[in-house]
Nucleic acid binder design. Structure first.
Lengths: 352, 352
DNA sequence: AAAAGAGCCGTTAGCGATAACATAACCGCA
DNA sequence: TGCGGTTATGTTATCGCTAACGGCTCTTTT
């Protein structure tokens, strides 16, 4: 800890007027040069540019946005940034927005509806050009705000429900069903479920519902389940797996369905460490298709949630609507999650 | 894909005037109520609040910020969001800022200086109350902008160098030295280095410099090294480890130093899968101390980079400076990275 | 009872930019 | 020579909000 150099001149921030005076033209002309809009002679253009550079002028977008009522920001509201899935969605969003004038601004809700509402309010008060928000479940107030904002809204990740405007995602119910079907087809019977203790993770809930629905049709049900919250997901996966397996030694489970790949990976490592034959003795599957699984000793079965693609599609909807006022609203894009059998889920037993 | 409901009324956005008319008081009074500032009678307060709620009014911060020249945003400029380290820094920043009126806005540079410059320019044009930016290395133009912005600037992660204003971080050179010393003390001699192919990752470079410096003092040098870029770090860690070990079978390596925990974890899994005794035959160490290591079959040695703490401290500096104009500038906080021996690095051989 | 203060609310003048409309200079061509 | 048409620049009026100040009504004080 030490005292610094105190370089900052702390002078009044520069405005267009300063540049205009320095270059001997009107503010308007400076504005035109800086925005590359309207006709300006090459001579004044260079003169202005030079003056601006010399002074170190940085335009004030606040004033600009107020005057033009155009804000090139896109609000992106997501529950978390620390679980691999949303960073990938961001990647997709960025890919698309980099080709436009739009800039994403991220808000984190920590899966709390009231926090989401607050973040949304904050974001909307900056009058962004569009909103990308995770999930279809929001407080009434949040839905009302989005409905009244008069800007494109894209709800992402999930399409099982009613969207305020547009939506891009997968059907988590369908993802659950699909996985259940694959497990049943492979001949597994005693299935355990391991997930997070999060009543507000609607997507996990929907997957679970789809999953149990298909099991029920096959006259099966979840034999046992285990939930966690917080901590290292990998470690929790291990611990939960140990717990659930030990608890069912008398009538052993033959499949474990994890609500995300990270705990699935932990479970896989537990099984391998303890000489359990996967997928012989027991099959395993996760959800998400995170890249990280490639490095595991055995590839975990999973279902890809199309994260990057969702980000891209959502950003494209916003970009299109910003560019063309009359582009259609209420577009719903449902992506198809693809099942990856990996090396922990046996293929269909009898092809009939 | 389908047509939506078209709920959006697309009417002119609401302003203070609308609320003022609806509640029968002046705009100024509405503004006072909404900001909780100045004296307003309880009666009018509720009247205004009700009108605002009813209309669904959302204040326009653009106008507000312009009028008051106060913007409650803090620009956070970081290289990436997909590698576990910066999300944790964000956690620290958020923890502190949640207790204030300030809001973080994140910009991603992808480790490209010119991108960083562009992002910084964009951010500064919104006249934020402060800037938190990763690293001490920036383009000249970027440094000039920060120097002239007249707002608190905190450079984070690293303190080996000259800061524009304040800085919070660890000495990566020292981290490298410390790890080298521990490795030497444990008696390892033939040391391999595995890292990323990133000439612009200055912090990794500094760690490497510190590392080799201490080795040199002990008359040792890096026996071999291996670099990667892109892809699943876990998988790359495996592959690189296999490559470097095979290449040195004649005169085997006895230690591998990884530039991050993820590739280290991959290397660890490779060793375990192949029956290599860790840390007997070979010792391993990574860098960062990510939580995820807890779930590994054997705990990898690492060095904690104090990520959450860095975020907290940086945010605190900004918050303090925003609150009190005259708070000291140029504060430098150097945190001490702590070595975690885990189970892959033997303890000191002879305590002398 | 007059002065001083507190509480409540309105008026006016920007904040720093841009939209939209002049204006001026210059071109060519009838 | 004069008129339409560019091209290059300036002027004026906002954008929606807040700072600063002023004025009015009651209290409170001495």
């Amino acid at each position: 800890m030490s005292q610094g150099s105190g370089k900052t001149p702390a002078k009044r921030p520069l405005t267009l007027r300063d540049v205009s005076e320095a270059s001997g033209v009107s503010e308007m002309t400076v504005s035109r040069v800086l925005r590359n809009r309207g006709d300006v002679s090459e001579a004044t253009r260079t003169k202005v540019l030079e003056a601006a550079r010399e002074l170190g002028y940085v335009p004030n977008k606040i004033a600009g946005a107020l005057a033009s009522s155009r804000v090139n920001l896109v609000a992106v509201i997501i529950p978390s940034m620390s679980n691999m899935v949303f960073p990938e969605v961001m990647t997709g969003i960025n890919e698309v927005l980099e080709g436009t004038e739009l800039q994403p601004v991220v808000g984190i809700t920590n899966y709390k509806p009231e926090r989401e509402e607050a973040v949304l309010y904050q974001m909307l008060s900056w009058r962004p050009s569009g909103v990308i928000i995770a999930g279809l479940e929001h407080t009434e107030a949040a839905k009302a705000m989005m409905g009244a904002a008069g800007i494109p809204i894209v709800e992402i990740m999930d399409t099982d429900g009613e969207a305020v405007d547009s939506a891009v995602g997968i059907s988590h119910r369908r993802a659950g069903r699909k996985m259940a079907q694959a497990i049943i087809d492979a001949g597994y019977k005693r299935i355990g479920f391991l997930g997070t203790k999060m009543p507000l993770d609607h997507r996990a809930r929907k997957r679970f519902e789809g999953f149990t629905e298909v099991l029920a049709k096959a006259k099966l049900e979840i034999a046992d389940s285990e939930f966690y919250s917080g901590g290292s997901a990998l470690k929790k996966g291990r611990e939960m797996t140990e717990a659930i397996l030990k608890r069912n030694e008398e009538e052993p489970l033959d499949f474990l369905y994890y609500s995300n790949d990270m705990i699935g990976a932990g479970g896989l490592m537990y099984c391998l460490d303890n000489g359990i034959d996967v997928p012989g003795d027991i099959g395993l599957a996760g959800f998400n298709g995170i890249e990280f699984l490639d490095g595991l000793p055995r590839k975990l079965a999973t279902m890809d949630a199309c994260r990057v693609e969702i980000g891209r599609a959502a950003a494209e909807i916003i970009a299109k609507r910003v560019e063309d006022e009359k582009a259609p609203t209420g577009e719903i894009i449902t992506l198809e999650p693809s099942l990856d059998y990996g090396e922990t889920l046996k293929r269909k037993k009898k092809p009939l």
